[in-house]
């Protein structure tokens, strides 16, 4: 297990501790890593430093409040925090809502499967490495899309992103969830 993988599963443990024990030490660790990144993300999306600071604090507070909704079999902690930050950005900068799909949640007694969780965190890490390995121009274009700088017309259908394995991993988790629901 390399360093980044170990880190990704450690973030999952932090969120679980926040959910189960309201653990402020775990929260402080998440905060130290993610809050500056959320702030930088919001500034690159066009927020000034004061607004980005305020929104980053709100995003991290939402992480605490919604810890019970995080599903480590379907997303990494970075991905989950990204979606919270994206929605906050749309609300704060565009005064719009971001319609979210209906939640599919495991039953209350469901314990996340360790192997599935680890596999998903690994896929996320591989995707991150693949993104860094893209040619500079293409990587910059994708970053600009995620900073909200491109309209949907400017986003090319063929991005060349290697999404195959992470998609089928998530698809498998959804199939198991559907089986559990019926």
């Amino acid at each position: 297990m390399n360093e980044r993988q170990a880190t990704d599963t450690r973030w999952v443990t932090c969120v679980t501790r926040i959910r189960d024990e309201r653990d402020q030490t775990a929260f402080a660790r998440l905060f130290a890593h993610f809050a500056p990144r959320v702030k930088a993300f919001l500034m690159k999306s066009g927020a000034d430093a004061a607004l980005a600071e305020e929104c980053a604090q709100e995003v991290m507070a939402t992480v605490w409040r919604k810890a019970h909704l995080f599903d480590p079999e379907r997303a990494s902690v970075a991905t989950w925090i990204f979606t919270i930050a994206r929605n906050r950005r749309i609300d704060a900068l565009r005064k719009q809502r971001h319609p979210e799909p209906e939640d599919l949640t495991w039953g209350p007694e469901h314990e996340p499967d360790q192997a599935e969780t680890l596999a998903l965190q690994q896929e996320s890490e591989q995707l991150g490495r693949a993104l860094q390995a893209l040619p500079e121009a293409q990587r910059v274009l994708i970053e600009r899309a995620y900073f909200g700088e491109l309209s949907h017309r400017e986003i090319a259908a063929e991005t060349g992103l290697p999404l195959g394995t992470i998609k089928s991993r998530i698809r498998l988790a959804l199939e198991r969830l559907r089986q559990e629901m019926t």
Binding site: R37, K39, F41, A75, Y146, L174
Partner: peptide
């Protein structure tokens, strides 16, 4: 849903690589 989650994972990777030089 799985395809959308894949594209959100790209957002997670972009966030992870966001400039940590910005301080809170």
């Amino acid at each position: 849903r799985a395809r959308l989650a894949g594209y959100e994972a790209v957002g997670g990777a972009v966030l992870e690589d966001a400039d940590p030089g910005v301080a809170m």
